[in-house]
């Protein structure tokens, strides 16, 4: 491979990774923007979405004759599931703690994360064929390769751009455009920004802040749900611990872009995706170190530029 081909390949893989991370990072950053809470369970909600996706494939009979039908069905069912789950977590765990000290909520979020991880492990133990009969609940599950391998650049091209990368872009990019439009142009989106900027004033406008916060968790959860389907199809492997890595990537992306800042989260996610691609596809034995690099980025940003690349949308104190 020539240098250019290597760079091109890393770009393709990195951007595809980054787009998936971005969907998760948006959920982190939206929730932080509105209630100043790091929802540590967010990555695990995405993980549970992957298990639902695999269950659906299993119910359809594993290797599917009509892959697009299966993908459509997953995209129809998994996002509402994750949205409902995320909403329930807020309604029953975070909302009663809305006026509690920050640390209390943070510890509760970590607790919810543990609960989700364990639910994922039990789920992997279901006696379904796609879960290996459930014999080894904790082992990683392989996700059927519904899209198959097909290099769009030709069979003998060195650089690979497969239908999977195209699928990632086709699903994630329009969603981000839709989200941007919703937040910046609609009445509810404006209400959301208002609650993030000054919740008391928002209430005085007649906005029910609890409902707006609930809506934020629903949207964040739905995006995580889409991310889980896309990630499962792209990486063809899921595990009950994957929420940790995805959460780390997405959280770092959100911090890197400036927590609370939506375009920042996407930009940060693309950076993290590229960094992962470089570590895993280019640096010899870099794969072992890629978590370290992401953690390192997180620490460096927090120490040297806590407001992130685009500046965080931390609430002004008037």
């Amino acid at each position: 491979m020539s240098t250019w081909e290597i760079i091109l390949q890393l770009l393709i893989t990195g951007l595809a990774n980054g787009l998936i991370i971005a969907l998760i990072a948006l959920g982190y950053t939206m929730v932080y923007g509105i209630v100043e809470l790091i929802n540590f369970a967010h990555g695990d909600v995405m993980m549970l979405g992957c298990f639902l996706a695999l269950t659906i494939v299993g119910l359809l009979g594993g290797e599917v004759a009509a892959p697009w039908l299966a993908i459509g069905l997953m995209l129809l069912l998994v996002p509402p599931f994750c949205a409902a789950l995320n909403w329930m977590i807020d309604r029953h765990v975070y909302r009663p703690l809305r006026n509690a000290p920050k640390l209390t909520v943070l510890v509760s979020a970590i607790g919810v994360s543990f609960v989700c991880v364990n639910l994922g492990m039990f789920w992997g133990g279901l006696p379904m064929e796609v879960f290996g009969g459930g014999a080894q609940a904790a082992s990683a599950k392989s996700f059927p390769d519904l899209l198959g391998y097909h290099n769009l650049l030709g069979n003998d091209a060195v650089v690979q751009l497969t239908s999977k990368e195209v699928m990632v872009a086709v699903i994630t990019v329009p969603l981000m455009i839709l989200l941007t439009w919703f937040v910046s142009r609609t009445r509810l989106g404006t209400a959301m920004r208002a609650v993030a900027q000054n919740p008391t004033a928002a209430q005085l406008m007649g906005i029910d802040t609890n409902r707006v916060v609930g809506l934020t968790f629903i949207i964040g959860g739905a995006l995580a749900g889409v991310a889980s389907v896309v990630a499962a199809l792209y990486t063809t492997s899921i595990s009950f611990q994957m929420g940790y890595r995805n959460g780390l990537d997405a959280f770092t992306a959100a911090v890197l872009g400036g927590i609370g800042n939506l375009p920042g989260a996407v930009l940060g996610a693309l950076c993290i995706g590229l960094a992962r691609a470089v570590m895993e596809g280019w640096v010899p034995n870099g794969g072992q170190w890629s978590n370290t690099v992401v953690f390192g980025v997180l620490i460096l940003v927090l120490v040297f530029r806590p407001t992130g690349i685009l500046g965080s949308r931390v609430r002004e104190k008037v």
Binding site: T190, R193, Q197, N198, L204, E316, V318
Partner: peptide, 9 residues
Amino acid sequence: EGRKIFPRL
């Protein structure tokens, strides 16, 4: 009190 304008709207 203090106006509480939404600063970035």
